[in-house]
Amino acid sequence: MKVLYFAWLRERIGVGSEDVTPPETVETVGDLIDWLRGREARYAAAFEDISAIKVAVDQEQADFDAPLAGVREVALFPPVTGG
């Protein structure tokens, strides 16, 4: 599965995208964030305030409880500020 990060989340984690293979116990986007947090300090720091994070699953807006089964791409980013 591909995970993408944007804006300050990308800067804090240090990469814009990466391929990850989480264990089967990681069933939702929320589980994925918890799993990423446990990997390294930079992830823990980036995901310190989860209320500041938005989610897209396969390029559609989604929630933390969105399931990951069959998903190709998960994007995590701060609230959008275009326009």
């Binding site: 897209a56 994007a75 959008v80 500020t81 275009g82």
Partner: peptide
Amino acid sequence: LKTRAPFW
């Protein structure tokens, strides 16, 4: 656009 399009 301001709330749904992914721009930062």
